[in-house]
């Protein structure tokens, strides 16, 4: 943001910025949207994302090769490495990388998800590292036994993969791992093990236009 000459707005909220025209509040998703726009402008966007949107709109049925291409793309996407999320009260007091987390502590999404779902909630086995957690998501996405569907949430296209947790099921884990990817951001939005797959995840409020690309459950 410094490159376009804006800086934090003194005495204002952390997402407010001052420019030559005064103080403005930054949109929460602005960095992500800019990053996404830059990727699209570079031409990198993205055949795989287009395939997802075409499939979601019912404009085409993906071939096995196309679905494989999409899932490889999604497996590579990961969480947004440039974003930061507040730990919030839920994680306050936990220790991560030698630091006692406060509600205001900012973490990359991958780390926040790991602390929440592996360290706090023990959905994955004891000893699961951050890299193990991310690898379990990648394995779920690429496993031909996983189910895949596309849907819309508040107008945003998303692709979800549901796979059996198997050896990745921890002492407080559940039967399935879910990974969800949002086309607009180009990154994962969630990786966790819901208590009740249908109620908690597939049929969640606001999810629309569900279209299965591969169904194993």
């Amino acid at each position: 943001m410094d490159s376009i000459g804006i800086s934090p707005c003194p005495g204002e909220r952390r997402d407010a910025f001052v420019t030559g025209l005064g103080c403005f509040r930054r949109l929460p998703d602005l960095d992500t949207r800019i990053s996404r726009f830059q990727r699209m402008a570079s031409g990198a966007v993205l055949r795989a994302d287009q395939l997802i949107m075409d499939a979601a709109a019912g404009a085409r049925i993906l071939t096995a090769e196309e679905l494989h291409e999409v899932l490889e793309h999604v497996a590579r996407a990961g969480f947004d490495p440039n974003a930061r999320e507040r730990a919030r009260g839920e994680l306050a007091g936990l220790v991560w990388q030698g630091q006692v987390l406060r509600g205001s502590t900012l973490l990359p999404p991958a780390e926040r998800h790991y602390v929440k779902h592996v360290l706090l909630r023990r959905e994955w086995p004891a000893g699961t590292s951050l890299e193990d957690y991310l690898e379990s998501a990648r394995q779920t996405i690429l496993n031909s036994g996983s189910s895949v569907f596309v849907s819309a949430y508040q107008g945003q296209w998303q692709l979800a993969v549901i796979g059996e947790s198997g050896n990745w099921r921890g002492p407080h884990g559940n039967e399935f791992i879910v990974v969800e990817y949002r086309v607009e951001t180009g990154h994962w939005t969630t990786v966790f093990q819901p208590r009740d797959m249908y109620t908690d995840f597939i049929r969640t409020a606001g999810r629309e236009r569900v279209r299965w690309l591969r169904r194993r459950i």
């Binding site: 998703d29 974003a83 999320e85 508040q154 879910v178 990154h187 966790f192 908690d200 969640t204």
Partner: peptide
């Protein structure tokens, strides 16, 4: 509205659980 929509979405799913 400070939190990105992706965060709210994730938290909603986990709250469902």
């Amino acid at each position: 509205d400070e939190e990105p929509d992706t965060v709210r979405y994730h938290e909603m799913l986990v709250w469902n659980s």
